[in-house]
């Protein structure tokens, strides 16, 4: 039985290296039961590696993994965790229904095949050979497979990669409907809008480390910093960069461009402490800001500032 304090996911100091590359670097993350968490980051950020370790498909070089207080293998054996992987193998000469029957038979307790077929919206193709199903249909089958054990934690690794907009919407509505019963869901994605639309909490990961963690609102505010532009001959770049919430300062001749989360503070400083004129504040594109936050040359200071928020 779960206690109230029991965490769905408890990762501590998780580290995984592949030769000289550190894919996951001292990652610590706690997910409470019932949360819907987006694991957001660019390709190669370490999302899949982390999920592999969560499922026991890969062993961490350092750190611990607990899923509802158990090792991944124990959690899987009891059907407490299941996953929809990016590319999971399916046998082409099984039908959709047979794939589910086969998998259901492996659990001590499983939901009925008819029920998960319906939940995943693939009842009509139950008799179709897997090899004849489209990519989207195969992905729905993987989702149905993941539902068989009625898991407490469902992991989705870029589940909609390669789907069109309509397919993505249908897939997520099925997940949403199913998660109403209090299932914990953690999904990896590199689509900002997907994380925004379907998660309660966003964990931003870059180069194997968490760079930001908060509610979608918090992350959006963080990501949607503004750009302050002004004419200021002989601007002191270092002084401006030292202002709170400043991400970058660029000088183009007499023009100074400051990217900052706290644009008001920067504007106040420029207008009261310097000779700046022609001041202009513009919003930054959300997608662009996300790229700035997660790109390899993003300043470490942001990571430190946002990381301490939670």
């Amino acid at each position: 039985m779960a206690t109230d304090q029991e965490l769905a996911v408890d990762l501590r100091g998780l580290t995984k290296r592949f030769g000289p590359v550190t894919a996951v670097n001292d990652l610590t993350l706690a997910v409470e039961s019932g949360e819907i968490v987006a694991f957001l980051g660019p390709n190669g950020a370490g999302k899949t590696t982390t999920i592999d370790m969560l499922l026991g498909l890969s062993r961490p070089d350092a750190g611990t993994v607990r899923v509802y207080g158990k090792t991944p293998a124990e959690a899987i054996a009891r059907g407490e965790v299941s996953a929809v992987m990016q590319t999971g193998g399916l046998l082409k000469d099984f039908t959709v229904g047979e794939t589910l029957q086969y998998t259901a038979s492996l659990y001590a307790h499983a939901r009925s095949v008819a029920e998960v077929l319906e939940r995943a919206g693939i009842t009509d193709i139950a008799d179709r050979r897997v090899g004849k199903c489209s990519g989207g249909q195969q992905q729905r089958l993987r989702f149905a497979l993941a539902l068989l054990s009625d898991p407490r934690l469902l992991l989705l690794d870029e589940p909609t990669a390669g789907m069109d907009v309509e397919g993505r919407r249908e897939f997520w509505s099925a997940i949403r409907k199913d998660a109403e019963h209090g299932r914990t869901v953690m999904f990896a994605t590199h689509y900002l809008d997907e994380a925004d639309a379907y998660a309660d909490r966003i964990v931003l990961i870059r180069q194997g480390s968490i760079v930001a963690d908060g509610t979608t609102g918090e992350i959006k505010a963080l990501a949607s910093g503004r750009v302050v532009r002004a004419t200021l001959p002989g601007a002191d770049q270092a002084a401006l960069a030292a202002l709170p919430g400043v991400e970058s300062v660029e000088l183009h001749g007499d023009t100074v461009v400051v990217r900052a989360a706290d644009s008001d503070g920067v504007a106040r400083h420029l207008l009261t402490q310097t000779e700046a004129r022609d001041l202009e504040i513009t919003s930054r594109n959300l997608e662009e800001a996300f790229i700035a936050l997660t790109s390899d040359d993003a300043p470490e200071t942001i990571a430190a500032a946002t990381g301490s928020e939670r």
Partner: peptide, 8 residues
Amino acid sequence: SRQLRLTP
């Protein structure tokens, strides 16, 4: 086989 590793 990898898919089966996600089952008991």
